[in-house]
Design a protein around this nucleic acid. Structure first.
Lengths: 247, 247
DNA sequence: AACCTATAGTTCTCTATATAATTTCAGTAT
DNA sequence: ATACTGAAATTATATAGAGAACTATAGGTT
């Protein structure tokens, strides 16, 4: 069983990806695909290290990442097990709307309602660490899943050279930023509940006063330079967030 | 500057706490207390290792925990820095309402509206991995901060020997569970937006139809045994959640 | 059958070391 | 003053190894 499964694991120093990342990814694929089920024991660290001819500490590092993602749990003296309920990772990793929806097998799309360079309003400037009035790209988009509106995104982006046409073509703002060499690294989100006003209700095709999840996010690149400040209004009936917490 | 600060760091093998945990905690205290400000460089890993006479890998492990908590960021070749905006940790660590509020310098209290052992309803039983009808403690509490109602908690707890009097005395369900030797380890939360019905509105002193953040949480102990399934309704105007995401 | 002990297996903590990749700084040449 | 090179400094990856702490199992004794 487990022995046959672990024969599928392949890691190589030639790949250019750190060994622990390769292992983490392959183990994660096995878990997410359902090959290993919740509470099923994984091979021990020492066993994997021997089988793959790598150091135990390297295996341990890979496993540590899976623990952090809530996919496995480890018990001293007993072993390592697949965590119950494979997690949605919306609040575990920084992903774009497009990525998140595709990961759920849904077809995301967007209507760009506004795409223009504006002077940064005071609060946005403060969020992004700019002087008020610094030019930023103001981007308002209606986000759809399988053709149905689910969220309204109102973003201020520090990169002002992204065009309406590019957005329509590529779809994902994050993908466009990454094409430009911006390495997204970290974001901070604040989640609140609000009710829909008339304009938002119309766009999202819900009644005025319906509950919305409001998500405010500031995103930084790997040099901790701010990239984006966005407020998203999400239909609460079609879209919710999940997270694993640790003690 | 940094030299004087690091003279305050003390770790000892006698303490019984792993060295990396001791260091992580002390560094965290320095950051949270404001001794180190955002973007300020921390001592390098090698410097700390030399100063504390411990291995670089041990320092690195401590730092890794701080990175995971969003308190610092590391740049290859440059160093380690305090992350901007010290984070509220509500969605980073598993903490109780009581702990969270105290951490924010607020005075939490509760009114227990219901505290009785009941047969687990089907959905709760499914959440907790029980047979329907298994006895669970049903606990409904109005949570207050500085005397003002902010949330309504409706919990089903697997430990049925907790009394109304204990809750009133100690206040924190998690503290009571921990007194009983239950080591809380992990929780999964789902966040949604809803609107207040008449009963909830009255209890929370808001208008009917006002937005609420609904948080559904299942908590497990360190053996991954379910401890609690809870639904919290939180006033959106007084209480919101934050989280750091990583790419 | 119950209990105790020894052993094996597993994760946890820690050490020492090395190389790779990146950034920064100092020295030298133009 | 500027540009280039090499060294120093820093984090990132990886290794090998050891002992501690815990769990599970097997075997022996009562």
């Amino acid at each position: 069983m487990t022995e046959r499964i672990t024969k599928r694991l392949r890691i190589s120093k030639q790949v250019g990806t750190p060994l622990y990342r390769q292992l983490q990814q392959q183990l994660e694929d096995l878990i997410v695909s359902g090959t290993w089920r919740p509470r099923e024991p994984l091979p021990s660290e020492t066993e994997l290290a021997a089988r793959l001819d790598i150091s135990v500490m390297t295996v341990r590092q890979a496993m540590g990442l899976l623990v952090n993602r809530g996919l496995i749990y480890r018990e001293k003296g007993r072993g390592t097990f697949v965590a119950p309920r494979p997690l949605e990772r919306s609040l575990q990793r920084l992903g774009s709307f497009t990525e998140d929806m595709r990961a759920r097998g849904r077809e995301p799309s967007a209507q760009t309602l506004l795409c223009e360079v504006v002077p940064a309003p005071a609060q946005i400037a403060a969020d992004l660490g700019f002087c008020p009035g610094t030019p930023v790209l103001h981007l308002r988009r209606l986000r759809l899943v399988d053709g149905f509106p689910v969220a309204l995104h109102d973003a201020y982006v520090t990169r002002t050279d992204i065009t309406h046409a590019e957005l329509n073509s590529v779809g994902s703002l994050y993908a466009l930023l990454e094409q430009r060499g911006i390495e997204l690294d970290e974001a901070r989100e604040v989640l609140e509940a609000v009710v829909a006003d008339t304009t938002t209700a119309e766009l999202l095709r819900i009644r005025r006063g319906a509950p919305l999840l409001q998500v405010t996010r500031i995103t930084w690149d790997r040099h901790h330079v701010p990239v984006e400040s966005i407020t998203a209004l999400c239909r609460a009936d079609m879209y919710h967030y999940s997270v694993t917490l640790r003690r």
